[in-house]
Amino acid sequence: MSVPNHHLDLRLSEEEGILILRAPDVGYFTAPLTRGAVVAPGMQAGALQRLEGAAALRIPEGVRGAVISDPSERVLAPVGYGDVLYRVDPASAGEAMQDEGEADDVGAGLVLVSEQSGRVWHRPGPGEDPFCAPGDVLEEGAAVCLIEVMKTFSTVPYRATRGLPARARVVRWLAADGGDVQKGDPILGLEPA
């Protein structure tokens, strides 16, 4: 895959309170966000390989929420202009976008947030199992994911700080594998174990 040489904003429309993000051009759609990923304006949400090269797809202004659609099973999915790439539920934004430092108890959920800005990787390496998956119980120091900052990878451990309990069960990923996070963005949805 060639390096994305520029960005294209996804095209936005709305249907019954759900935000629809559509392909801005014809091409092969790749590296999609997964269901549950939390999106905010400016985030990269996959790439489109066009005749003139690859372009990073960006979340446009006014879009915050959680992806509620499943990614294509094809690695390079052919899409046309205007095809639906993501459905985003803005109602999930309140739950998912807790980025003020404290992990609030939202409904049954707790949130582990990122301490720094970077790119999140769910797996220690390509083809390997993720560090954790929904249903796993995390204890102090357990590896949650990798975060890539300026080509340096560090392990993000589970810490019982900021209101998180000593043991927590993983509910779902809130940051996409390969997705960019800002400091304070949610990585995992949790519940007390």
Binding site: V26, L51, Y81
Partner: peptide
């Protein structure tokens, strides 16, 4: 659309 050469060629390829 109908005059976008690269988009049309891409559509044919994919």
């Amino acid at each position: 659309s109908y005059l976008r050469m690269s988009a049309i060629v891409q559509a044919a390829r994919q």
